[in-house]
Amino acid sequence: MKATLRSYITGFVLSIVLTLVAYALVQDHVNSGHKNYSHDFIIAVLIGLALIQFIVQAIYFLHLKKKGDARWNLLAFLFMSGVVIVVVIGSLWIMANLDYHHDQTKDPKETSNYIIEDELPSQQETTDQTKSEHPSH
C-alpha cells in the first residue's frame, strides 16, 4: 500500500470502527451481567479484533508490503513476530502448567495424582508443626 491520503484515511476509519466494536462488545457483555457470551469466546473475539487492527495499521500506516525495498522490512518483521509468539505463548504455556501443579483450589484428594509421595501436603504440615513446637536455639 503506497502512502497516500486515501490509505491513511482508510486505516484511520477502519481502526476507529474496530476499536468501537471491541468497546461496545465489552460494555454490552458487562451490562448484561457477563451472560451474553461465554468468557473464552469474548476473549477470542477481542484478541481477533486487536490482531485485525494490528494488520490494518501495518498495511495502511506502516506500509508493509512484499515488493521493493520494503521486502527487507517485512522479513525483519516476520522474524520479530516469530520471536514474539514464542516468548508470549511459551511463557503463558509454561506458567499455566506450573500453576496447574500448584493449584490449591483443586480437591486435596486429587493432589496425590500429580505430586510425588514424600511431598504430600499433609506430611509437610506435620513436619512444619514439629519444627514450630521445638524452635531451634
Partner: peptide, 21 residues
C-alpha cells in the same frame, strides 16, 4: 509513532478490555 499506537492497541485490548470482563 505508528509503532507506539500499535502497541497501545494491545494494551487497550489485553489490559483494559479483557481486564473489564
Amino acid at each position: 509513532w505508528h509503532f507506539l499506537d500499535i502497541v497501545w492497541i494491545f494494551i487497550f485490548t489485553i489490559v483494559y478490555m479483557i481486564g473489564a470482563l
